[in-house]
Write a protein that binds this DNA or RNA. Structure first.
Lengths: 135, 135
DNA sequence: TTGTACTGTAATATTATTTATTACAGATTA
DNA sequence: TAATCTGTAATAAATAATATTACAGTACAA
């Protein structure tokens, strides 16, 4: 993460509001107050998941890859978070300690359970719904 | 975060298993495979929240500050995570853009809702319960 | 067919965050 | 008073996140 989820949602909201009209990375970057190359990179990732379509060359730009009503925030989340929301677990505790030996396994299951409730919550919110909150 | 939640749980589990016997930062550090000073620093934080008690000087060390059955993982989580699990939101989008102007507010509400389900999940798990998973 | 305006992506630099280390003062015990 | 702890600050090192630059490739339009 860190701001990436916010950035992704921001981009997708702009595209939804654009209503099919192509938006350019420069325009999006200025709304985000970020760098166009960064925007294109994020979009590149979102496009790999079918959430955005792009058109190259003069007159090119970006549109949503599918209807805003069929994109959930869980879909967006899954495009970028590949570790638990509770953090990484790449510690290497002492295998000679009973707790150290088993902690990674137990933490991993705990984290999985938490990630599930996060995804469940996010899957109940569509991009269309989120976008509706804006004037 | 990142490994801090795991570290905190690890420490607390050790203390629970110690069953009232004082543990030293050296011992804990060797189970974690980390530095004693780092352990003491984490413990210092947990102690501020009453989860751990410490005794200074020769023969000193650490014990749980209250019964493991009355410590939930939400309590532990609250001692260290002061931003959303979904990330920070310190972007400064363009205030002249309708989306940019409102995104921080809307993201903030979204994140709050997600954090609530995380805390709800964690509050259903006690340290005692977690600790029981270990042989 | 050439100039213009875009995207795509790699390379790199910068900044921020996290983790690790060292050091030592203060506390407590025997 | 020597030994063994904690408490904490200062600093260093490692890692991760973000920003920037650059330019090749693509498409349009005159």
């Amino acid at each position: 993460m860190n701001a990436r989820f916010q950035i992704a949602i921001h981009i997708l909201t702009l595209l939804d509001k654009a209503d099919g009209e192509l938006l350019q990375s420069d325009y999006i970057a200025s709304s985000l107050n970020a760098n166009p190359a960064l925007v294109r990179k994020e979009i590149s990732n979102l496009r790999n998941f079918g959430l955005i379509e792009s058109k190259e060359g003069k007159g090119g730009g970006y549109t949503l890859g599918k209807a805003a009503g069929s994109i959930t925030l869980a879909d967006v989340f899954k495009t970028l978070k590949h570790e638990s929301v509770l953090g990484t677990s790449k510690n290497q505790p002492n295998p000679n300690c009973p707790v150290g030996r088993q902690i990674n396994q137990n933490i991993s299951e705990l984290y999985k359970g938490v990630d599930e409730v996060v995804l469940a919550k996010l899957s109940g919110i569509t991009l269309a719904g989120f976008s509706l909150q804006f004037d």
